[in-house]
Design a binder for these strands. Structure first.
Length: 586
RNA sequence: GGGGGCGUAGCUCAAUUGGUCAGAGUGCCGGACUGUCGAUCCGGAGGUUGCGGGUUCGAGUCCCGUCGCCCUCGCCA
């Protein structure tokens, strides 16, 4: 072992180690030069240890120590010593001891970093991404990646114990219609042909079920060339699951067991099972979205029947045009919303298509509102009862098409909860959403499209109506919703070729097209496909939720910007003309 | 493609209606200091106010264009 190599890490030493001679390696986190004594906080991913350089331990070493700067990489050999009484640091795990240096080796000097590693101060993300290696050196981000590692370990342990087999699936596949935009890779050996990077291993895992693997899992990288969001990256990681001879409950139970382990082991957070199962229609009605944040109430209430005949023209017209009127009750907040702030809320609602936002402030014996005079006393009383409104509450209404009412009230609900602090930090609300429609009508393409994906099985009793009442057919699909995020989704798949053919036809894929794109799947279904189903969870989102992050990027070592660039490496970048010629692209 | 926010010293931010507004904290450099741990004290350097153009006697501030980052709608089976 070279003399500079470490015997311990910077988070390891305790008072019981006093007297030992040790060597520590790490980065200079902070230095405090008293002219005589020099204190250095040495950092590695395990923690911080204070090193003391005393002139009496060697003048040359002490002089060298005075040259140290933050982020230099050093090796220090010295004696573990109990700190003098009154100088112990309870904020550090190693705060009872210090290492009195006997020798110091500078392993590498460092330029002054563009931002302080030792500070938690928020730095513009652009700078952090350009110098990602420095950002990743910050303890906060290291803790997130360590948490992610522990999560991955739980995945492997849990699914192995539950009889699942990990199988890797190709990155280079074929492009399939529907779904997200593909990332394409040119084929050198087949001019004019392209591979597609996987949007998910969906078809492969179904094929694995046909192959008899029965229980499959994979931590799979997925790529989609779509626009980014705070919770969406172009490449992301899914926990991908597929099981044979199962129905919905079986898949859901496996995932519930997994979630109990994850939240319990990583956060000490107790999840009670079974998770609530809410129907799609119910959540759309109560929350206006299929991924409701259930950490607070403020449920949406329909009042179309109560107010459609009032004098208020906005309400009347909405109903005459086939629209609806729904609202939410914001408890004990009337005095917090001035006219100006209510206008801001209206502007917020307008971003989601609402033409306006009507409001009523509830007082003891009346409503305070510009529209109060249009609402008869009887209706006012009914509104009170329907919202269970108390004095001090505020009612907000949107009158429009069902889609706009749902979109705007759902967004408003989340916005208000954040603004009013209705969400307790560290709180989690998990639920399943089930009974999704199998097909939804696409106005732009003027055809039915698969709500989840075209391999999702219809509910058995709805199957006869697939062609006659397509909009009412339910899917054997389930989404896992956590704190307003879609953490995962899955379904029981179609395992009979004739049903698959009917669904393909309904979404406008004729037999020839279907054969061309998915012939291998249709073939496979003919060779003894077991009933099967599965699910995929977004690992990046799960990390984000577990770590309490507001962006998925902070749980990813090397994330991309909203324009899908890597600011550190500069990807994407032009390539050499020679590479293009080899591919027949130039 | 649309809407919104941000861009001033390495970093985080400030600068009334266009008029000593080129500033603070921190970091950095130098000096002092033997028990600090957000060390302290003294001194110093550091700016094309993202970039380009325009209006004006005068622009960090107003206008137009453009670039970058973030949030969002569309998009994401």
């Amino acid at each position: 072992m070279a003399q500079w190599q470490r015997t311990h890490t910077c988070g390891q030493l305790r008072s019981s180690d006093a007297g030992k001679t040790v060597t520590l390696c790490g980065w200079v986190h902070a230095y405090r030069d008293h002219g005589g004594l020099v204190f250095v906080d040495l950092r590695d991913r395990y923690g911080l240890t204070q090193v003391v350089f005393d002139p009496s331990a060697g003048a040359a070493m002490h002089a060298l120590a005075r040259e140290l700067r933050t982020e230099w990489v050093v090796s220090v050999t010295g004696t573990v010593t109990l700190r003098p009484e009154g100088t112990r640091n309870p904020k550090l795990a190693t705060g009872d001891i210090e290492v009195r240096a006997q020798s110091l080796e500078i392993l590498n000097r460092a330029d002054t970093p563009p931002f302080e590693i030792s500070s938690d101060e928020a730095v513009h993300e652009e700078v952090r991404l350009r110098y990602r290696y420095l950002d990743l050196r910050r303890p906060a981000l290291q803790q997130v990646l360590i948490l992610r590692h522990r999560l991955n370990k739980i995945v492997h342990r849990y699914f192995d114990e539950s009889g699942f087999i990990e199988v890797e699936t190709p990155m280079l596949g074929r492009s399939t219609p529907e779904g997200a935009r593909d990332y394409l890779v040119p084929s050198r050996l087949h001019r004019g042909c392209w591979y597609a990077l996987p949007q998910s291993p969906q078809l492969y895992k179904q094929i694995l079920m046909v192959a008899g693997f029965d229980r499959y899992y994979q931590i799979a990288r997925c790529l989609r060339d779509e626009d980014l969001r705070a919770d969406r990256q172009p490449e992301f990681t899914q926990l991908d699951i597929e099981m044979s001879f199962v129905e919905m409950q079986d898949v859901m139970q496996v995932i519930e067991g997994f979630l109990v382990r994850v939240f319990g082991e990583l956060l000490g957070y107790n999840i009670s099972l079974p998770l609530p199962r809410l129907s799609y229609n119910e959540v759309m009605r109560k929350y206006g979205t299929d991924k409701p944040d259930l950490r607070f109430g403020m449920e949406i209430v329909d009042i179309t029947d109560l107010v459609s005949n009032t004098e208020f023209r906005v309400f009347r017209q909405a109903v005459e045009q086939g629209g609806i009127i729904r609202g939410i009750c914001v408890r004990q907040s009337a005095d917090r919303y001035s006219r100006k702030r209510l206008e801001e809320l209206e502007e917020f609602a307008k971003r989601y298509g609402a033409k306006g936002l009507a409001w009523l402030k509830v007082e003891v014996d009346k409503f305070s509102s510009p529209i109060e005079k249009f609402i008869p006393a009887g209706v006012q009383q009914s509104l009170r009862e329907r919202f269970q409104a108390q004095p001090g509450d505020m009612l907000l209404f949107v009158a429009d098409s069902e889609k706009i009412v749902c979109d705007s009230l759902a967004a408003l609900r989340n916005h208000l909860a954040a603004e009013l602090g209705l969400i307790r930090p560290g709180q989690f609300a998990l639920a399943w959403v089930i009974d999704f429609p199998l097909l939804v009508w696409d106005e732009e393409e003027n055809r039915w499209v698969a709500n989840h994906h075209p391999f999702t099985s219809p509910v058995d009793e709805d199957l006869p109506y697939l062609e006659t009442k397509p909009g009412t057919v339910r899917a054997k699909a389930y989404d896992l919703v956590v704190n307003g995020y879609e953490l995962g989704g899955g379904s029981i798949r179609i395992h009979r070729p004739e049903v698959q053919q009917r669904v393909f036809r309904m979404i406008g894929l004729d037999d020839e097209q279907a054969r061309k794109r998915f012939g291998f799947l249709l073939d496979a279904l003919r060779f003894g496909a077991p009933p099967h189903g599965g699910i995929a969870l977004g690992m990046d989102r799960l990390v984000m939720l577990l770590a309490g992050l507001s962006s998925i990027r902070d749980g990813i070592a090397f994330p991309k910007t909203q324009r899908a660039q890597d600011l550190m490496t500069g990807a994407p970048a032009p390539v050499d003309i020679k590479q293009l010629k080899e591919l027949g692209l130039a």
